[in-house]
């Protein structure tokens, strides 16, 4: 019975980590669009390349933070949470 409970905990943690990483798709698409538009802007106004690059770098970094939140949640669910949940389970059973 304990093995089944541990298996369910591990499975749910892995499922949660996988679900969290769906958020990792968005930043790639967003950054790609931002850079594509920046290419267009620089093509129209080459003299503003420095400003556009600077603003875009900051924008890309902000967009990427969403993916990093998801990444950290996934890592904690994969490597830290199972141990804690199993400890709780064992202490509950006694």
């Amino acid at each position: 019975m304990l093995e089944i409970a541990v298996g369910i905990i591990l499975g749910c943690c892995a499922l949660g980590a996988g679900t969290a990483m769906i958020a990792g798709i968005g930043p790639g698409i967003g950054e790609g669009n931002a850079v594509a538009k920046a290419c267009e802007a620089i093509g129209r106004q080459p003299e503003s390349k420095g400003d556009v690059t600077s603003t875009m770098l900051m924008g890309c970094a902000i967009a990427e933070t969403t993916g990093l939140y998801a990444l950290v949640v996934a890592i904690l669910l994969l490597f830290v949470a199972p141990g804690i949940f199993i400890d709780i389970l064992i202490s509950t059973i006694g």
Binding site: G28, G32, V35
Partner: peptide, 28 residues
């Protein structure tokens, strides 16, 4: 990320999109 953005800025729009998507996945 800065290096990849710099690399992508000299390309066409579609290619820039692909470079940034690939770089984001690699860095993640």
């Amino acid at each position: 990320m800065g290096l990849f953005v710099q690399k992508a800025l000299g390309k066409e729009q579609d290619e820039a999109k692909k470079i940034i998507k690939a770089s984001q996945q690699l860095r993640t």
